[in-house]
Design a protein around this nucleic acid. Sequence first.
DNA 1: GAAAAGACCGAAACCCTTTTCTGTTCGTGT
DNA 2: ACACGAACAGAAAAGGGTTTCGGTCTTTTC
Lengths: 343, 343
Amino acid sequence: MAGKDHVRGGKAVTLTEVARLAGVSVATASKALNGRSQVAARTRARVLQAAEQLSFVPNTLAQGLLVGRTGTVGLLTSDLQGRFVIPILMGAEDAFGAGRVNVFLCDARGDTIREQHQLKALLSRRVDGLIVVGSRTDSRPSVGHDLPVPVVYVYAPSDDPEDLSLVPDNVAAGRLAVEHLISCGRSRIAHVTGDPSYAAAQDRVTGALAALDAAGLELVGEVMYSEWSERWGRDATAVLLERYPDIDAVLCGSDQIARGALDTARDQGRKVPGDIAVIGFDNWDEMVTNSRPELTSIDPNLQLLGRSAAQRVFAALDGEELGKGVHTQAPRLVIRGSTVARQ
Amino acid sequence: MAGKDHVRGGKAVTLTEVARLAGVSVATASKALNGRSQVAARTRARVLQAAEQLSFVPNTLAQGLLVGRTGTVGLLTSDLQGRFVIPILMGAEDAFGAGRVNVFLCDARGDTIREQHQLKALLSRRVDGLIVVGSRTDSRPSVGHDLPVPVVYVYAPSDDPEDLSLVPDNVAAGRLAVEHLISCGRSRIAHVTGDPSYAAAQDRVTGALAALDAAGLELVGEVMYSEWSERWGRDATAVLLERYPDIDAVLCGSDQIARGALDTARDQGRKVPGDIAVIGFDNWDEMVTNSRPELTSIDPNLQLLGRSAAQRVFAALDGEELGKGVHTQAPRLVIRGSTVARQ
DNA sequence: GAAAAGACCGAAACCCTTTTCTGTTCGTGT
DNA sequence: ACACGAACAGAAAAGGGTTTCGGTCTTTTC
């Protein structure tokens, strides 16, 4: 039966079978396939051909048993739904390289018990490292710092200062946003943001106020907190425009809120960016490119964050000290039509 | 050093160590931990306590080596970026249950060579099954039907009819959408959709035309194809309203296009749903809930699709026939304010 | 009190691959 | 022609766990 040669009753081909076909011992077959020197060219060719013919794929598990490394990393997330996890995941997957290291993905659905389960499962699979990704930047309970593998926390930092956490720098993000608005000649800036229980909201406020202060400016009105939705962005902006008709910029806590702000400005006949500049956070592609005008935003560089996490795990595997504490990733300003008129 | 008891030089605890601590052989320790009957209650207790004390976690790899099953499944996607993959992934992960089966996630970035790499890596990790997820519903090349593990294609069907593929039923989706519009009393329906090279676009058109035909109606104007963006939705709707001022419904090929349509309708003072009903596809949460009014949409039930895929793989592992051909998942209508006025 | 039965524990094989070490064969130098 | 070294092939152990089978010890029964 052609094309089925390498399937033996649904089971994978083993090195023993390759060796038998090539007429050598498993030891020799192994050496031939791994390019070790103690095998004659002719023999090696025979083995390679046999392996090809059976389409042999070595069992990484058995290899890992010897070496003590599995070439796998666990990625434990609390919320796949959230769109912040995906770029981090991609960055990590990218850094691990195609095929070299594989990623076990686990979604705990925000459930602690489930997380414990998943953690145990990952350890039983002997992952070489662990990346724990949260859905918000507030600190989360440590999974324990006495695990047999290096652990890196991403986005949501661990509450244990002994752990290593990589998070976006939201204070810098807030500062960067305000500095950009100021550099665009704005001085009467209001701030609409989301749920005040989010550290991300607070940090951005902190950064924004610092930047305003450094420029000798003050925020127009109070910070307006509520939820991370377009609706709130629309409603809050309507209130703002009525209460402070002379504002020339709205700093929005997320791209969604910013889109809402753009809609209200448009409804009320305010030109963006002519009369009012609008800026958001996250640089969420679908939001920023589909609005009218396109939205200037602060990109948290999440993919880089994921990549760094993977690299840290790698380094730890090579014996390097993992490090500890909370490290921040600098944000990036992406300028679009909502703050600078397109020529 | 308390809390570090179970870490021996960074290496995981092995059954041998547990056995030694409990003063029994590895064989007995294994039987005790696995609830086999040939071990005295007292001995079992001693072993369990030792395992607890060292926080022993059995090495699933070593187990898998014996049994021939690893309890892992590979999920090979061509595009993580795309938002269709995530719900499928969640559905699958869900069905596999917390900790029972773990998922290897691989993103091939739409690159065939990379995909081959990943495939080989997954096979070398001895995954028990494979789920291949595409980013569009057009058929894709088979990864080969002579692999040693069951393979299920999701979203993008395999071009090999011998393979098993699970896809959303876009024809039914198109029909469902039009039937809903008709049931809302609409009869002058236009259709704006995305890239005509997408099977999803064509299928929805097919379904929509069939439903119109069944009701003795005709589409207003030609189907308007271009790209899957809000901008196109806005522009196309503007053209539509000028050319056919009397239309009472716009069937949009995606939620993004629908949002664009809503924006234009709003700009031109047309009431939704009073003057014009708008309906989209995908039921993309952020799109449908943030628009004004909220958007009626056809949900492709992707999470169910992922769940089905996982269940099929499960069944195949239990010796059941995998089946073949393209199977479709029925869509679901989600009614919101863009077709039916909220009371 | 002895034999049979049963309960319990441990030695060893097995899964698949790598690696070390030993053994064989061949070629070369003297 | 002999000894020696090089080159190559294979046996065996290791890695962590499960399972079978055989052996020991206790208990039961006549």
